[in-house]
Design a protein around this nucleic acid. Structure first.
Lengths: 103, 103
DNA sequence: GTAATGCATTACCGTACGGTAAGACATCGC
DNA sequence: GCGATGTCTTACCGTACGGTAATGCATTAC
């Protein structure tokens, strides 16, 4: 249950959601790559957000030389979110059919 | 886009998620009803959370005499969440099929 | 009318969080 | 080796948030 706490706490910040969006859209990125999309932020701030996302298991990190490449961990994300979504299943017929159209 | 900010900010707190769960499970409830499920909290705290949920349009409130009955606003909830879910659609084949089984 | 109930509102407190700045560390280019 | 680069870490600051307590305001009971 605390897994969901981590998930929603991580998703609460718009910058972190945007980072996830970028990872989903562009594939794995380094901290520097991501920082380029946030001119209003300092690079270490991005790193901090990435650490939070990593703590929530929403991204995975692999070293590449002196770079660190972050990738979306969609499996863990859907695993944590699915039980929560299921609780409201009966209320979401319209949204679910919309998702079914996409799938 | 700020609609999603409100949504995720509101969902970030475990107590608020539990309130939504209770509303989904038990139907519309008054503040006093809900407060009974949170013995560790003061009633005004519940009221405050409900105001936050109301600001995010996740619940609706209707007066009944001196009571105030809160109900889950599942429509607004799914409306705000669906676009976000859609962004990760391609990553979530397994979760989506699980949802399809439920629907 | 008067007292009690149910909820909202305000003020206040402690803490957690987002952000920046500065320093440590490892890696690459020379 | 040496300087530069990329990232992490720590410390710090301001603010926003969760929580309580107290007050106010309707509405019900008597």
């Amino acid at each position: 249950m605390s897994e969901q706490d981590d998930l929603f706490r991580a998703l609460a910040d718009p910058t972190r959601r945007r980072i996830l969006d970028l990872l989903a859209e562009l594939g794995p990125q380094t901290v520097g790559d991501l920082a380029g999309h946030f001119p209003e932020l300092v690079a270490s701030g991005i790193s901090k957000h990435l650490m939070a996302l990593r703590a929530a298991d929403l991204v995975t990190a692999t070293r590449e030389g002196r770079h660190q490449r972050y990738a979306l961990n969609a499996d863990a994300m859907s695993r944590a979110l699915a039980p929560w979504l299921a609780k409201y299943e009966s209320y979401w017929s319209s949204a679910l059919s919309r998702l079914r159209d996409l799938a």
